Simulated scan of single mutants.
Amino acid sequence: MNQSLTITIDNQQGTITGPLTRDTIALLDKNKHKSIFKGSTSDALTIDLGKISHADTAGLAWLLLLLETASKLNRQLSFAHIPDDLLKLAKLSAVDTFLAN
Rank of each mutant, 00 (worst) to 15 (best):
N2A: 13
L5R: 07
I7W: 04
T8S: 15
I9G: 11
N11L: 05
N11A: 08
N11M: 11
Q13S: 13
I16H: 02
T17H: 12
G18V: 12
P19F: 00
L20T: 11
L20S: 04
L20K: 05
T21C: 09
D23N: 15
I25C: 06
L27E: 12
L28G: 02
L28I: 07
L28C: 12
D29F: 05
D29Y: 05
K30I: 12
K30N: 11
K32S: 14
K34I: 13
K34H: 15
K34D: 07
S35G: 03
K38D: 15
K38V: 14
S40G: 09
S40Y: 03
S40N: 08
T41A: 13
L45C: 12
T46C: 10
I47E: 12
D48W: 04
L49N: 01
L49K: 02
A55H: 00
A55T: 09
D56G: 01
T57P: 00
A58F: 05
A61M: 06
W62F: 15
W62D: 03
L63E: 04
L64T: 05
L65V: 03
L65F: 00
T69V: 12
S71L: 06
N74W: 01
R75L: 07
R75C: 10
Q76N: 15
L77Y: 12
A80L: 08
H81R: 12
D84W: 03
L87P: 00
L87A: 10
L87Y: 02
K88L: 14
L89Q: 03
L89K: 00
L89V: 01
L92I: 14
S93L: 09
A94R: 15
A94C: 13
V95P: 10
V95L: 13
D96I: 01
D96N: 15
F98V: 03
F98D: 06
F98Y: 15
L99H: 05
L99Q: 03
